[in-house]
Amino acid sequence: MREAFLKGRWGLYFFLGLLLVLGGCQPPLKYVVNEGLVFGTSYRMVYEGREDHHLAIKEVLNDFNSSLSTYDSLSVISRINNNDSTVRADAYIKQLLRTGRRITHETDGAFDMTVGPLVNAWGFGFQNRSDISDELIDRLLLLVGMDQVWLEGERVLKKQPGVMLDGAAIAKGYGVDVVADFLAQKGITNYLVEIGGEVVTAGINSRGIAWRIGIDKPVDDTTASQREFQMIIEVSGRALATSGNYRNFYMEDGKKYAHTIDPRTGYPVEHSLLSASIIAPSCMEADAYATACMVMGLEASKDLINRLPDVEACFIYHTDVGDEVFLTEGFETMVVE
Rank of each mutant, 00 (worst) to 15 (best):
E252P: 05
E252C: 04
D253E: 15
D253W: 05
G254I: 11
G254H: 10
G254C: 11
G254N: 09
G254P: 10
G254Q: 11
G254F: 10
K255G: 04
K255H: 15
K256W: 08
K256D: 08
K256E: 05
K256R: 15
K256Y: 09
Y257P: 03
Y257E: 04
H259K: 04
H259E: 07
T260S: 13
D262A: 06
D262G: 05
D262F: 12
D262K: 04
D262L: 08
P263E: 02
P263Q: 09
R264E: 05
R264Q: 12
R264Y: 10
T265I: 11
G266V: 09
G266P: 14
Y267E: 07
Y267N: 09
P268K: 03
P268S: 13
P268R: 02
P268D: 08
V269K: 07
V269M: 06
V269F: 12
E270S: 15
E270Y: 13
H271E: 10
H271Y: 12
H271Q: 09
H271S: 06
H271R: 10
S272A: 15
S272L: 08
S272F: 03
S272Y: 03
L274D: 02
L274V: 04
S275W: 02
S275H: 03
A276M: 09
A276W: 00
A276I: 01
A276G: 11
S277T: 15
S277Y: 00
S277V: 02
S277I: 02
I278A: 03
I278R: 00
I278L: 07
I279R: 00
I279W: 00
A280R: 00
A280Q: 03
A280T: 03
P281E: 12
P281F: 06
P281D: 15
P281Y: 06
S282V: 05
S282L: 05
S282H: 06
C283L: 05
C283M: 04
C283D: 03
M284T: 01
M284A: 06
E285D: 13
A286Q: 12
A286H: 03
A286E: 10
A286V: 04
D287Q: 12
D287K: 11
A288C: 09
Y289A: 01
Y289D: 01
Y289M: 03
Y289T: 01
A290R: 02
T291S: 14
T291N: 15
T291I: 05
A292H: 01
A292Q: 02
A292S: 11
C293D: 06
C293W: 01
C293N: 10
C293R: 02
C293S: 15
C293V: 07
M294A: 07
M294R: 01
M294E: 03
M294L: 14
M294T: 02
M294H: 05
V295P: 00
M296P: 00
M296D: 10
M296E: 10
G297D: 09
G297F: 13
L298V: 15
L298D: 05
L298G: 05
E299D: 15
E299S: 14
E299A: 12
A300C: 03
